[in-house]
Amino acid sequence: MNRQLTAIIEREGDGYVALCPEVDVASQGDTVDEARNNLKEALELFFETASTTEIQQRLHSEVYVTNIEVAVG
C-alpha cells in the first residue's frame, strides 16, 4: 500500500533538513534530492517498524501548507 505524505525541505547550514509533518519524521542530506530520499527511507522504516497504535497516534490526517503575510519591523 502506498500513502501520499507531505515533505517540507529547507536549507540548514550547508545541507538540507526534510520533515514529514503527518508523522513528525525528519531526515537530512547534503542536497534537496538526498534529503528527500533520506526522508523517504526514514518514513518507510517508520511504517515498517512502528506498531499500529503508534502510527494511529502520530498520524495527522490533515496537514495544510500555505503562505501567510505578517507585518515585521
Results as ranks from 00 to 15, higher is better:
Glu62Ala: 12
Leu45Arg: 02
Thr31Asn: 07
Ser27Asp: 07
Gly15Trp: 02
Val17Gly: 04
Asp30Tyr: 03
Ile68Trp: 08
Ala50Glu: 04
Glu48His: 07
Ile8His: 08
Glu22Asp: 13
Ser27Tyr: 01
Thr49Lys: 11
Leu19Val: 14
Gln28Met: 07
Thr53Phe: 01
Ala71Gly: 10
Val25Arg: 01
Asn2Arg: 13
Met1Lys: 14
Gly73Tyr: 07
Leu59Gly: 00
Tyr64Cys: 10
Lys40Ile: 06
Glu10Phe: 14
Gly13Phe: 05
Gly13Lys: 06
Gln4Thr: 14
Phe46Gln: 06
Val65Gln: 11
Glu34Tyr: 00
Leu19Lys: 10
Gly15Glu: 07
Thr53His: 08
Ala50Gln: 07
Asp30Ser: 12
Asn38Tyr: 03
Thr53Asp: 13
Val65Lys: 10
Glu12Tyr: 05
Thr49Glu: 15
Glu34Leu: 03
Val25Glu: 05
Thr31Phe: 09
Ala18Arg: 00
Leu5Met: 14
Leu5Asp: 04
Gly29Arg: 02
Leu39Pro: 00
Asn2Ala: 13
Asp33Gln: 12
Asp14Tyr: 07
Ala26Asp: 06
Ala42Asp: 03
Tyr16Ser: 03
Leu39Trp: 01
Ala7Met: 01
Asn67Lys: 14
Lys40Glu: 11
Thr66Arg: 14
Ile8Pro: 00
Ala18Cys: 06
Gly29Gln: 04
Thr66His: 14
Thr66Asp: 15
Glu54His: 05
Ser61Arg: 10
Glu22Phe: 08
Gln56Leu: 11
Glu12Leu: 09
Glu41Ala: 12
Ile68Leu: 14
Leu39Gln: 01
Asp33Glu: 15
Asp33Tyr: 06
Asp33Leu: 09
Glu12Lys: 11
Ile9Trp: 00
Glu22Pro: 08
Cys20Met: 07
Asp24Lys: 08
Ser51Tyr: 02
Ala35Lys: 03
Glu22Asn: 11
Ala35Leu: 01
Leu19Thr: 12
Val65Tyr: 09
Asn37Phe: 05
Asn38Cys: 03
Val70Thr: 15
Phe47Ser: 02
Ile68Met: 13
Ala35Val: 01
Glu69Leu: 14
Lys40Leu: 10
Leu45Asp: 10
Ala42Val: 05
Ala71Glu: 15
Gln57Lys: 15
Asp24Gln: 11
Ile55Cys: 04
